[in-house]
């Protein structure tokens, strides 16, 4: 059966049914912890793989079929582990390019922000730059006057306290950063317990007897 999944753009042209079947077979024979889902990109791929095997994979990982398959595919070293390719700028629709007699204007960066103003009585937004809309139009004041607080007669003490509190802040943030990094490492590193659990799930499947056909 054909299973269609979305894959990261950086995997395009590098994912094949045969590889997926091989990975699936390896995984079902010796389950292991899988890397996290690299995320669905915009590229679609059709994989010709047995539906029952996908069901088992789905049961072991507890993910949806597409997530489970992406995690399985991500375990292959040849594929990049994350989705890194940048999203390209929006292009004019192909039909617009091919329509005769219509010259394409240069793309403007305001096309996306112009939508909320469409239909109003003001000047056509296509003719306004982003700065003109936001600052020149007076809708927002982006740079308000800075607020200053004065502490009369205590300037030197305040400066010392400020240095101390700054150092304290830095230490606290460094500590929090360390804790967060440790947590992330623990979260994404292969856990022996998870491997054991997935092996246990597979081992719970009944073991059946082999069949050797005549002449096989």
């Amino acid at each position: 059966m054909t299973v269609k999944i979305r894959i990261p753009d950086s995997w395009a042209g590098r994912v094949h049914s045969q590889d997926a079947r091989g990975l699936l077979q390896d995984f079902l024979q010796s389950p292991r912890a899988l890397p996290p889902d690299p995320g669905a990109g915009r590229c679609r791929v059709s994989l010709n793989i047995p539906p029952r095997a996908v069901k088992i994979l789905e049961g072991i990982t507890g993910d949806s079929p597409s997530v489970a398959l992406r995690r399985l595919l991500a375990s292959r070293r040849a594929l990049p582990s994350s989705y890194r390719s940048p999203i390209p700028m929006l292009q004019a629709a192909p039909w617009a390019r091919s329509s005769p007699g219509v010259a394409l204007e240069p793309r403007r960066s305001v096309s996306m922000v112009s939508t909320p103003w469409a239909g109003m009585d003001s000047e056509p937004v296509e003719d306004m730059s982003f700065d003109a809309i936001v600052n020149g139009g007076g809708l927002l004041e982006l740079e308000p006057e800075p607020v200053r607080i004065a502490f009369p007669g205590t300037s030197s003490v305040f400066d010392e306290q400020s240095d101390f509190s700054l150092a304290l802040d830095v230490m606290v943030w460094m500590f929090l950063g360390g804790v967060a990094a440790w947590f992330l490492v623990k979260l994404f590193s292969p856990s022996p317990a998870a491997v054991a659990a997935s092996s246990e799930v597979v081992q719970q499947l009944p073991q059946f007897k082999e069949w050797i056909p005549i002449g096989g």
């Binding site: 079902l28 029952r52 069949w211 056909p213």
Partner: peptide, 27 residues
């Protein structure tokens, strides 16, 4: 002579799942 015998369709379903990727099986 067939090595795997089933009287329950759920068990048979498990067997077929097991057999999916095997080159040979008999039940």
């Amino acid at each position: 002579f067939v090595p795997n015998t089933f009287t329950d369709l759920d068990e048979l379903d498990q067997f077929l799942a097991w057999a999916t990727l095997r080159p040979t099986f008999a039940g």
